[in-house]
Nucleic acid binder design. Structure first.
Lengths: 143, 143
DNA sequence: CTGCGTGCAAAGTATTTGCAAACCG
DNA sequence: CGGTTTGCAAATACTTTGCACGCAG
């Protein structure tokens, strides 16, 4: 299994122990080109691992997100979703609210992005979430 | 109270009944240049209204958000926050994760935004959430 | 009056935590 | 072996719902 070797290496590089469940979790996320909720991942994994706890899935997904391996998809319904994006470098995502597929978008300006999405994905942009987080001058000083 | 008249009109235009609590809620949000959680708003309002239920605050904030009067601030901790933004037209926000102040950003490209933030707010951008939502070609057809 | 708005109590539900046992390296 | 990882059960905590009463129009 080439893929598994890759995931194996990935985990090692992060300093995480390589367990069958972690490999399977990465595999599920890696094969899916859509974002998934922890519960969905759990249901898929339980086919192979009868005794898999939902908390384990939550913990691992959170951990992997912290390491930047997978990314969180924000939903206004305030549920967690994750997506495995192998692409490196600065880029953003176009997500379909219906089928949950994710497409990489290389350009960053939203106007430009809309154009690219119309052209490449032939999709419709219904909304976008753009929020810049940081610290204002006052708070940056206090750190 | 000029402000109250404005909120009064605002509610009327939305076809919502004008109640003292709604006016006060708008007032709290309108005076605060920061995003607030429903509970925080509730605590502030309870100074004036002893019998104010938290659900009422949730309901009203959700309603106002639906009407586009206030906007939801996304947090990865999956809690709800709202911010009253009087500014119209296409623009985005810079939010300080520390003091929660919100600044309007007129330009849309993220690179440009970072520049503007550094210049105007003298703040530091630690991260940004940019997610374009919509429907891909396949799903758009199925609608 | 008439229905929207609200308080209160109660339910929901996704997510998190504690702890002992299992497992990787 | 020694510290992670995991299962299970239970707890959290935010948010939502149901229903009866009250108030705006």
């Amino acid at each position: 299994m080439e893929k598994n070797t890759a995931y194996h290496t990935l985990l090692k590089n992060l300093g995480l122990k390589v367990t069958p469940k972690r490999l399977a979790l990465l595999s599920v996320l890696g094969e899916e080109h859509r974002y998934l909720s922890p519960e969905e991942v759990w249901k898929k994994l339980r086919r192979s691992f009868k005794n898999l706890g939902l908390p384990t899935v939550y913990r691992n997904m959170e951990e992997l997100e912290r390491h930047g391996v997978i990314s969180k998809v924000l939903h206004s319904n305030r549920q967690l979703y994750y997506y495995f994006c192998p692409k490196t470098g600065h880029h953003h995502h176009f997500v379909c609210l219906e089928c949950r597929i994710v497409e990489d978008i290389s350009v960053c300006a939203v106007r430009e992005m809309e154009k690219e999405i119309k052209r490449r994905v032939k999709g419709t942009v219904t909304s976008h979430i753009l929020q810049v987080n940081g610290l204002c001058s006052g708070c940056a000083g206090k750190q």
